[in-house]
Design a binder for these strands. Structure first.
Lengths: 254, 254
DNA sequence: CAACAACATTCTGCATACAGAATGCCGGTT
DNA sequence: AACCGGCATTCTGTATGCAGAATGTTGTTG
């Protein structure tokens, strides 16, 4: 009676499908998205009880998520005080992109030496996709492909620590870029710079790749910063934003 | 009856002395120290209940601290499983120092342009202190001064985001360096390299400063990695470490 | 009318309680 | 003797309760 293995397939049934991701992880991802996309605006207060209800979880996993998001610079924790969605100052943007330029420059240099043939193939595919979206004027699609490209270049450096470092900065940069939709001429330039980068990578020119991507990021940063500061000057200071202290009802969003 | 302000000084009494640092923050600092110094060895399991008792706190703040330490790469979180003190593989060390070299190189380049006269003065003082400890053979004192120097150079770049990024890597690097006490000849070289760096900074030679520090860190990394791998080969694989599953009783340490 | 102080309210930080997942043990089977 | 299945135990993930800190409010005083 070989009646074993009744309840479920004993040998690999592929992959167990839902790894049942933890609540604090879900909350983290979800909140990051809301903050990056500006649906939770800078300066908005975070009342834990309120937010936890909106998310349908308890305060415990929420607090864990908040601590982590604070590391990413998306939330400002104030000891014993209500935390806030992090502000978005021009000066800070400048610093983020300065570091990003260095990190991605480094990554591109290494990628030129370490990228596999397959890596380069995928990069080229992404490049074509970007150019397609650019020609068609699909901003959002371009945006997504562009981010994939940046991440892929970093991945090609074959250094997980570098990738993690990059990731830690990425959310902040993405958030800033979201608020500052770049101009058309910058868009054109950006596509061209990506093309140059790809050529440098394919010819294994480490120094050129590093320089090109670093400058590309720096320029993007400059544009974003100017855009943000333009917005800042329009809203000089909320001075006394009356007294309503609910700049963001999360319920409407979540 | 001008009897106001009885309970305590109404106008600033300097600074409120004990800001009463939160438990999760204390736990984080304490655990980081224990891990970096090797008193909580790589691979040691972390039973939350046990550890929280050892630390005299509850699981809630401990868990928050663990999540943060995981971001620093000191702890490996395994969903629904007991977490562990992060392993310390040679390959990983290599990656950490590769990134550190890039980050500190970038920092030195910026520092050459942005360091104030006072910054340079303090750097020179640190350099003298390092040379003193080196001549006397005070390893620990040298070690401390050396770390201060690296941090100060990064601070001179006047970019808080860069400093935070650096800090995130520092604990890992420090941990590796702790396990691998460098050789004497490397020590001598190291002091010389620091001197060269200082000269480059003082003469505002950005490119040179960047190159010198980057190479300095890379060399250190190579030494540390070799040391670690030497240790690894001695302990090829714990195979079946019998069945005692308490590689580290924290009570003895804390 | 401005300023201050005591109070009431709100929110955070921490501890504890509970349910589900994972692991190890033990007996039964081939 | 090795393997498998089921059970007991252990540990994590989450929810809830409670005390202290911080803030807003109100009444009072100069």
């Amino acid at each position: 009676m070989p009646a074993r293995s009744q309840k479920f397939s004993p040998l690999k049934l592929g992959k167990r499908l839902p790894p049942a991701v933890a609540l604090h992880e879900q909350a983290r991802t979800r909140l990051r998205g809301l903050i990056v996309r500006g649906q939770l605006p800078p300066g908005a207060p975070i009342i834990e009880t309120e937010l936890s209800q909106s998310l349908g979880i308890s305060r415990t996993p929420l607090r864990e998520a908040l601590k982590l998001l604070a590391v990413e610079g998306l939330i400002e924790l104030r000891s014993n005080r209500t935390s806030q969605i992090a502000a978005l100052r021009g000066a800070e943007i400048e610093q983020v992109f300065e570091v990003m330029a260095g990190v991605e420059g480094m990554a591109a240099g290494l990628a030129a030496e370490r990228a596999s043939a397959n890596d380069l193939k995928r990069l080229r595919q992404l490049q074509e996709r970007m150019e397609l979206h650019h020609d068609r004027g699909d901003r959002d699609d371009y945006f997504a492909a562009n981010q994939d490209a940046h991440r892929l270049v970093v991945a090609c450096a074959k250094n997980p620590i570098l990738a993690a470092t990059h990731d830690g900065l990425f959310a902040r940069a993405e958030r800033a870029r979201f608020l500052a939709l770049a101009s058309r001429s910058r868009w054109d330039d950006s596509v061209a710079e990506h093309r140059d980068l790809l050529i440098a990578l394919e010819s294994r020119d480490s120094a050129a790749a590093s320089r090109i991507l670093s400058h590309h990021v720096a320029r993007t940063g400059r544009v974003v910063k100017e855009e943000i500061e333009r917005a800042e000057s329009k809203t000089p200071a909320p001075a006394k934003p009356s007294r309503e202290r609910k700049p963001a009802r999360v319920d409407d969003i979540v």
